[in-house]
Design a protein around this nucleic acid. Structure first.
Lengths: 201, 201
DNA sequence: ACAGAAACTCAACGCTTGTTGAGAAACTAT
DNA sequence: ATAGTTTCTCAACAAGCGTTGAGTTTCTGT
């Protein structure tokens, strides 16, 4: 709805003067859309409109909607090292640390949480997103279980991840009122011991 | 001699002889599609094709795609009493019983699990499905916490539900290999104590 | 200064979507 | 029988989708 007025000196067509940050703008708009609306409901035109850009620009930078999605997914989450450090250290408060790391990653700054939300929402309908989330979780699991000899350590880590993702889904996507109302510390206090029991039998 | 074939016994147009079970056939096809592909990817034409029916038939029985979806959701899950009985009984093996009830409900017969899968998949992209799943979970929570005085009993039950739904999501939707490979008994043995700890502090 | 690449707008394409209406055949009444 | 309702096929619609190509303007390298 923001049409340039007639007195505007900037031409209506052709390349605009100055440097262009259109490409990252598109990526950011796509990230936000995919995170909040999911893959199918996020149309190219809507994303382009969010970035104040023509739809065909999106196609020029990222060759298709799928590649745009892949680009959003490929963003190395800033939260990545949160996980790796969470599994290190003494076993005593392992559960608590892991729970806090997960909740923090999904509920922190948009820059940090949106790729994860997009992954989660996209994994339901988009096959590549599902594979992406799968490999993401698996990579975390390998970090977490490195140095342990347990045969089922991977399974235990996978269970813990799935349970924590379930809590995040309930809070951020489905919106179960009971979970939404709960504070982070309260959750950590309750879930920490349970996760501890899963990870360190 | 071009159009009507006198030898053709099955007419191509008009109502077919005999009783019609088209309406339930559509509902069943829709349930399966919504469960496996989610709301957006399940097109009316595809569902109609699954049910060997014209697309406009779907619109005649259920007035819109949204109402079709609502009809699928409205099916009272056979698994319903599984949950209510799981919370009853002594606290000793409560966690184990609840875990077994959840896994069984989502991994049993298609008739039993498909409405739940459709709910879960639909909750990501469809607002009404999200509300439906929310109220479904809340109803289970009320059953589970009835008779308990704890102020945070509802939160504990909600957490347990979310964690178990997370495990099911990892197994049936995202397909985390580690979780898929695990057997039900193995999962119950690992997760049972953790859920127990959540529910009975 | 000049050529080529890059950024941008605009208009359209082919396709699929949910949805509708006309009409044909079979059922259910009276 | 006759009328009316229900079930069904077929063809089309308006809208939205992802995508493409042509043309215009600016930047960049030489």
């Amino acid at each position: 709805m923001t049409d340039h007025n007639a007195l505007d000196s900037t031409p209506r067509r052709g390349r605009r003067p100055g440097a262009s940050n259109t490409r990252p703008a598109i990526l950011e708009a796509a990230r936000a859309r995919f995170a909040s609306d999911g893959f199918a409901a996020s149309t190219i035109r809507l994303i382009a409109s969010d970035a104040s850009v023509d739809a065909s620009q999106v196609m020029q930078f990222y060759r298709s909607k799928d590649e745009l999605f892949a680009a959003v997914m490929a963003i190395p989450p800033v939260a990545l090292d949160r996980f790796s450090t969470a599994f290190e250290g003494p076993d005593e408060h392992l559960g608590e640390r892991v729970v806090r790391a997960y909740l923090g990653a999904w509920e922190g700054e948009p820059e940090e949480s949106e790729p994860l939300m997009a992954m989660l929402r996209g994994a339901i309908v988009n096959e590549s997103a599902s594979a992406q989330l799968r490999s993401f979780i698996e990579a975390r699991l390998l970090e977490g279980t490195s140095g342990r000899a347990d045969a089922d350590a991977a399974l235990r880590a996978g269970l813990a991840s799935a349970m924590l993702v379930g809590i995040v889904t309930g809070r951020k996507i489905i919106g179960v009122p009971t979970l939404v109302a709960a504070g982070t510390d309260e959750l950590v206090a309750m879930v920490g011991p349970a996760i501890q029991q899963i990870l360190v039998p």
